[in-house]
Design a binder for these strands. Structure first.
Length: 147
DNA sequence: GCCAACGTTGGC
DNA sequence: GCCAACGTTGGC
């Protein structure tokens, strides 16, 4: 899952312990969240910053439910087209697991393309804020963080 | 700040 | 249903 550290960083999650992953307004990303299970592990990625990359781990602590911000006109992600009787957008609750001692940068991930295989995060033009990762890819990223 | 790669919108 | 225009994302 991606976040701009200016908006919400791994340090923010560490402080909060858990958070509602609100504001996702992309159907594919939403569908990924709807398919999540409690305990699913998450790579936490910082985008739009000095060193984009995976900075830590989180996990799913609450199954998908209606994202309340879609109905709030004062919210940045307000969606006037979404009706309470038929909500468009969902979110999950995620909990802090750990912050890596070092960032596993996007550059580094691209350099490991052979080992990672078809990795959603490094696919060209991928702008999804929530995407899937295989266990093998997850394990490789974690191993890079501690190496 | 630039720009490529998207997803969405809306006219037709 | 097509597609141009537009807005957004995000690396660089």
């Amino acid at each position: 899952m991606k976040s701009e550290p200016n908006a919400y960083s791994i340090d923010d999650l560490k402080r909060d312990k858990k958070t509602m992953w609100d504001g996702v307004r992309n159907y594919q990303a939403r569908n990924f969240m709807r398919s999540m299970a409690i305990g699913d592990q998450i790579l936490f990625y910082h985008s739009n910053c000095d060193v984009p990359g995976v900075v830590g781990l989180a996990k799913v602590v609450g199954l998908a439910y209606v994202d309340p911000t879609q109905f709030d006109p004062s919210d940045k992600h307000y969606d006037p087209a979404s009706k309470p009787e038929d909500p468009r957008w969902s979110l999950v609750d995620i909990g802090f697991v750990k912050k890596f001692k070092r960032t596993v940068s996007l550059t580094e991930l691209k350099a490991r393309a052979d080992e990672l295989g078809d990795f959603a995060l490094t696919r060209t033009g991928n702008r999804l804020s929530v995407m899937s990762v295989t266990q093998a890819q997850f394990d490789l990223v974690v191993s890079l963080a501690v190496s």
